[in-house]
Design a protein around this nucleic acid. Sequence first.
DNA 1: CTAATATTCAACCATATGGTTGAATATACC
DNA 2: GGTATATTCAACCATATGGTTGAATATTAG
Lengths: 108, 108
Amino acid sequence: MVEYTYPLDSVFNSLADPIRRDIIARVARREYSVGELVAHHNVSFAAISKHLKVLEEAYLIRKRKEGRKQMVSLAPETLKSADEYLGQYRSMWQSRYNKLEAVLKEEV
Amino acid sequence: MVEYTYPLDSVFNSLADPIRRDIIARVARREYSVGELVAHHNVSFAAISKHLKVLEEAYLIRKRKEGRKQMVSLAPETLKSADEYLGQYRSMWQSRYNKLEAVLKEEV
DNA sequence: CTAATATTCAACCATATGGTTGAATATACC
DNA sequence: GGTATATTCAACCATATGGTTGAATATTAG
């Protein structure tokens, strides 16, 4: 368990791993049990369980008990915070496109 | 040096550290020399140099030699890729807001 | 050439990460 | 109750990370 100084630390850290991004992609579509998620990766049950812990501590997923299964779903509000962070910089890569767009409008 | 499987790994990993996010925020506004960036943090010159290496390998910054200084600037196109990744999920947190918005419109 | 400035490199350290295996726990099935 | 299923926990391991200090490498100034 790591102590994160800022919420964005744990969110971006979660997103920095391809297995965790795959889990996010899946649980964004529907609920998955832990075992179902394990079935899609070549790592152990315990490894997936650890990835889920990372995602849960970042508030990116939620787990719900259903009998002996744990059903995992996405907590999309947390992704919003990451998106808002990037939003600060959006104009910087759009500016080039906007210039082009402006030029095209003039030309036509 | 780490080998990243996917470009998003190194981008999100870069963003997962508050010092690196601060560097990004600064160099988004103007060029900074490495020494100037060091002056804003309580860590050694070498530590900042390492953070810059992480950011450079993720293609988030560029360095330009100016005499004995290295001038650092943002490479915003790379942030765009992270933004596009999050864009996949944007409707998921907007939908809730949109529902609320819809309800409010009905109520009023 | 020498000295000062700016930065990186190398070696080191403590802790974190991502994986493993095997035991422990909880729930469901018969 | 006993067995099977689902998941987590604990211990362990190799490597990565983020920091340090001190030496090495430019480049500029005198």
